[in-house]
Simulated scan of single mutants.
Amino acid sequence: MESQVDKGTGNYSKTLSIGHASPSKIPWRFLGQYKYRILEDGSQTQYRLCIIESAIPPLSDGPVFHFHEMHDEGFYVTKGKVRFHTPGQHIDAGPGDLVTVPIRLPHKFSNPFDEEAVFINTITPGFFVRYFEYLEEMIGDGKTLTREVNMEALKRFATVPLTDAMVKQFEEFYDDLAEKVNGN
């Protein structure tokens, strides 16, 4: 007997369509000195995935150290270089490089270089997309994104912003772990 699509699956599939974003038709939005545009807001994936393109100006620090309680991130660099930090180490990623950040890994990114950097950011599940809109609302037009505003906005979206003391604790933890791995 040949398999057939059940009625429920058939009815559900009628509600679906392929998502398509043309970045050149999506205007940049501003978070102080940073630019972003939402390529997929989660509406095509029941918020299992969102995709954002971000541009970071040269010689800029990026967000505060933080970790996410509920979503993983991917970063695909398309222009310039982005420095991805975890406590005690960093990776410089250039065009074509992909960086993934799992839930609960403390991280941040920056652009300490002389050229604008651009990356595509995936977030799964995609509810964190609202963070960008909320942060934009908090800082308003033409204002600078401050550490304090960044930390306050992160807290609303299952994200833990780290104080300098917390970053130091993580650095010590990773140093202890490295010593154990290396047999010291």
Rank of each mutant, 00 (worst) to 15 (best):
M1H: 13
S43K: 06
P57F: 04
G183K: 01
T9D: 06
P95N: 03
F30M: 14
W28R: 09
V77D: 06
H66F: 12
P125E: 01
I52M: 09
A178S: 10
L162Y: 01
H107W: 03
V64L: 13
T86D: 00
L39N: 04
H20N: 14
F67Q: 05
A93T: 02
V5S: 11
L16P: 00
L154C: 05
I18C: 13
F30Q: 15
E40T: 01
N184F: 10
E133R: 07
H85V: 04
A153P: 03
T122K: 02
N11R: 11
D72V: 08
K143T: 09
T144P: 09
P87I: 04
D164M: 07
G88F: 01
P63W: 02
H71M: 11
D114T: 08
P87G: 08
T9R: 04
E179D: 14
D41L: 03
L145G: 05
H66D: 14
F127A: 14
K81G: 04
G126D: 03
I103K: 15
G96A: 02
T124H: 05
V5W: 06
P63G: 07
S22H: 12
N121W: 06
T78C: 06
N182E: 14
Q89M: 13
F67K: 09
V118E: 13
N11K: 11
R104N: 12
P57N: 05
F119L: 05
K180Q: 14
N184D: 10
G10K: 06
D61M: 13
E171Y: 03
G80L: 03
R29T: 05
G8A: 14
L135R: 02
T124E: 07
F30V: 08
G8Q: 10
C50G: 13
S110G: 12
E152T: 10
S60C: 13
F65L: 06
V167E: 06
P112D: 09
E115A: 09
G80S: 04
K7H: 12
G94M: 00
D114K: 09
L177E: 11
F84G: 01
M1P: 11
T124S: 15
S22T: 12
G74S: 15
F173I: 13
P112Y: 07
G19A: 15
F75H: 10
R147N: 09
V64Y: 03
S110F: 00
D175W: 05
G140E: 02
K155L: 08
D61C: 12
V167M: 04
F113T: 03
G183W: 00
E116H: 06
A165M: 04
L39Q: 01
M70E: 15
T9Y: 04
F109C: 02
P87L: 05
L98M: 13
H68A: 07
I103L: 12
F67T: 01
H68L: 08
K25D: 15
Y34Q: 00
T146F: 03
V99M: 08
T86G: 06
D176W: 11
P27N: 11
K168Q: 14
Y47C: 10
E179R: 15
Q46I: 02
S60L: 07
K168P: 00
Q33P: 07
G88K: 06
V101T: 12
